[in-house]
Structure formats: C-alpha cells, structure tokens
Design a protein around this nucleic acid. Structure first.
Length: 143
RNA sequence: UGAGGAGUCCAGGCGGCCGCUCUGCUGCAAGGCAGGGAGGAAAGUCCGGGCUCCACGGGUCAAGGUGGUUGCUAACGGCAACCGAUCGCGAGAUCAGGGAAAGUGCCACAGAAAACAAACCGCCGGGGCCGCGAGGCCACGGUAAGGGUGAAACGGUGCGGUAAGAGCGCACCGCGGGCCUGGUGACAGGUUCGGCAGGGCAAACCCCACCUGGAGAAAGACCAAAUAGGGAAGGCUCACGGCGAUGACCCGCGCCAUGCCUUCCGGGUAGGUCGUUCGAGGCCGGCCGCGAGGUCGGUCCCAGAGAAAUGGUCGCCACCCCUCGCGGGGUACAGAACCCGGCUUACAGGACUCCUCACGCC
RNA sequence: GGCCCCAUCGUCUAGCCCGGCCUAGGACACCAGGUUUUCAUCCUGGCGACAGGGGUUCGAAUCCCCUUGGGGUCA
C-alpha cells in the first residue's frame, strides 16, 4: 500500500503543467469505493465531507457521491457534482498523491460555489490523509 | 380601441480563458488538429410498437382493456374530419358518447307510494246517519287535476270535455314504430301510424362487439482471472406413477428415480466486449388529400456516457423588477441511460397566424 | 433504468371488495373533572383524521382518472 515514487502522475507528465483531469485520476471500480467507505479516514467541513483512502495508482483520484438527500432533482445534484469536480481539478496538484478522495456533500440543499469549495478541499484533503497515517501508525495491521 | 377564442413556434445571444467525452485524421510515443456533444417536456411510466429471450399443436374457460361514425397509422386507450348531447351572444369549448322492452342487484332520509303498480291529504257522485241550518260523520264507487316529500313520482303546455277528472278528444312540442329521400356511415330531413309503450344507476354485477401469450436492456450474446471442484451425453435396468410448458384445465406431446457401463469437457463469479445508436430519422421542395397523413426527389449524419461527459469562470448585449439617479438583482420548468409514436403533468418570458363580440369613425 | 405496493386522529388500526344507517368506530397518548392524604390504577367527559385535484352518481373515505409523498424488489 506504499506510494510508488517510480509511478509518475499521468497528469504531471505534461510538458506544461496544466490542470487536467484525465480518466486515470478518477475512481472507477466498485471495489475501490467499498474499500474507501469501509477503511478511509474522514474530514468534515461546511460544504464537504472528504473520505481519504490509499490506492495503488500513485496519484490522487476523485470519487463523487451525491445522494438524493442533497437535491431531489437531477439538475441540483449535477450542479453540486460539477462544482466538486472542478474544485478537485484546481486543487489536485496540492493534495497528497496515492490516495483516493471521495467527496460527499456536507448538507442537504447545498448550493456550492467554486472558491470556498476549493479552499475547503485543500484544507480537508491533507487533514484526512494525516488522520489515516496516524491511525495506521497506532494500529499496525498485518498489511 | 377594448374584451375574448383557436392554433403554431422559441426556450436568451456573442466572445475570451481553463476543462470533460465521442468520432475522424496524424504521430514510435507523449500528444496534436478538425468536427459533434441534453429536452419540449429528456419527467411521470399511463398506453402503443420496434428489439431481445422464454413459451409456441389444438380446444374450452378465465383475466384485463377499449366503446358514436369514417379515416390516418407499424400500432394505440393517440390523432383528424364528421355526427350527437351539453355549455357559450359568438369565435368556440367539453363529453369512458354501445345495451336498462336478456337477467340480477341498489335507490339512504323523507314520502301514501321508489317501480307487476298503488292512493295519504284531497276532488266528485249517489246512499245512510246527525244537525233548524251552514255543514259534519260513515261505508261504497269514480278520479289522479291540485297539495305535500324527494335527486327522481307512468309525457309537457293550452283549449275543449266532464259529476269531478283523465290522451278522453284536439293543437303545438316531446317520444316510439313503419316507409321514403340524402349520406360509405354515425345520423339528418320528410311523411305516415301510434295516444305514450311505463324512472335512474352499467366509472354496480352483467350482455354485445373488438383487442391482448409472458417478461423486459439489470432483456440478451460473447470473452474470461483467482477459488472451488464438478458437469454433460448415450445405452441398459424399471413402474405404480411422478414431473414439465410464463393465466387455468383437457387432449395430444416431452422427460425420468436408483444402480451399472461407455464417451466427452464444460459451467461460471470479479472484470471486460457487444447489444448501443442510420432511425416508422432531420431539413428543403414538388404532387395527392378538407385534415390527420401519404408519396416522390434532393440533401444531411445530428449525444452516446458507464461511480456515469455535455462543464467552470470572466466580459458585452437583450428582456424583466427595484430605484429620482448612481447602481443592484433576476432570466422558467427542468438533465439523455436501448430506440420510436402518443398521452399526462411542470413551465419565466416572448413571437407569429387566423377568428369572434362590443363601441367609435369613414 | 424496469416492475410492484401503500396512504384514515399525535401513533397503531376498523370501515373500502358490495356507495347512503359516517356528524368516520376502537385502542394507546393528550386535556379537564371525580375517586385517593398523595401518586398509580379506575370512572366520566372532551380534543383529534379520510394525502391533494378533477370526474361518475341524487349522494364518494369507498368507484374511475391525474398529481404528490412514502416503501419494496430486480445486478
């Protein structure tokens, strides 16, 4: 479960360091989500609940979970999901690599804006990772 | 000018920067370039089809749906035109709009009576009794005009008629049957006969006519780790029977428990690929049809994701609201998940066409 | 994405199939009053609902249609 420094970030390979969000930086499989929900560490803010869980991809990956309790109609959920996605795109370079981040809306009827969401993600992401490292140090499992 | 009716359409526009996804081209690769990228309802899932799998030989009976006529359509519970009823001065609108003389059932309360008809208060006749009298009482008979009840009481109004009345007679209206005419038809018009045939409810059971096999893309097809080990086919043995088929049953049909022998290797989870977007397709024009629509020619390729793209941000303009102004705020309902034809529901604001009524002027 | 159910006082329910006797019944809860020295128990009374909108019918909680809100199920 260690982050392999030999595995480069796909997005970081660009000649110009633009803020891309290719497919490799998103959580895809059902198993990854279940592991994160089960073992990940959480950090909660005003608009976001961040769940961090280590992965073997060597980069920071995004997972979104916008339930029907946030907005009952699909338009409202899409709005929340897109703002979260954009915030992750802008902030991804500053987050610890080698972790999956599931973003959950912190409150129902949420109307997020890009700036505060990005700032909160930049604060909560490292916090959740730090919590995970602490938990792993305290209970050294077989791994 | 004002008030209103019907229908069709749009769903803010342009630009900069940063992203996502699909297709094509290019490149050893990283990548680059070009093009496409939510809706009229994508929604509810109320109908109808395509498509896929299962069942598929016949019969009987269910169950469900539809309900004026003629058309349109792949089909429909949709649409068009027409007919009828009701509403509106009108343009028009609404209608699950077959059958109650096949049968069953229900019609609370009130009322004499709620459906083979009968008669509470009455009205009338002659008779008997009482009373000086006006009149009252009793039984019998005639009657259903009037009263009252109700949502609904065995045609309505008027005149004649009568003891009082009554389609008893007459006129008009309504109704029913026959015939004629027009129409493909629903039906309409005319004519003649009948004095009235005897309430409502079938979105109560039901009858009639017509329609419907079951499931649904999580349908289904293919590739295929790890792990676990098994499965399939044929033959023999054997009978009372049992089992199976997507509404039920019957006939017909198919299969076989157990044991033994022989032959073969397949099934399938995680995951992946296909199904998956060229289609009852869009646009333009000609012709046919009152119309829904049909047909011919040209032209275009116009979302295809998959923990799920179609976005974020900034500027200018347009419209609306607040404000003296500077300025500020707002721009609906709503997000594809196999596709299509409809219906229904939600919706800021706006554009266009046709029509009706009232008033004024020429 | 598909399919299938449900909705009645604050809560659990009866009535719906077969419409009227429904001003919708019962239990628990709540509020008064009584009993008791007080509390509990018990007795009496009260408050309180047909999810919303149309239609059929003389009449709808009940029949039909639409909407809304819950729930189940299929990988």
């Amino acid at each position: 479960m260690e982050v392999d420094p030999a595995t480069p970030d796909p997005a970081a390979q660009h000649a110009v360091r633009r803020l891309l969000l290719p497919r490799e930086t998103r959580m895809v499989s059902k198993g990854d989500f279940e592991r994160a929900w089960k073992q990940g560490s959480r950090a909660r803010g005003d608009v976001l609940l961040v769940i961090a869980s280590p992965n073997s991809a060597g980069c920071a990956r995004l997972g979104l979970s916008i339930g029907k309790k946030v907005w009952k109609d699909a338009v409202g959920r899409n709005r929340v999901r897109r703002v979260f996605r954009e915030a992750f795109r802008m902030t991804r370079q500053d987050l610890p690599a080698g972790f999956d981040y599931i973003l959950v809306a912190a409150a129902p009827k949420l109307k997020p804006t890009l700036g505060p969401t990005s700032r909160e993600l930049a604060r909560l992401g490292p916090k959740a990772v730090a919590r995970f490292e602490k938990k792993r140090d305290e209970t050294p499992g077989p791994q």
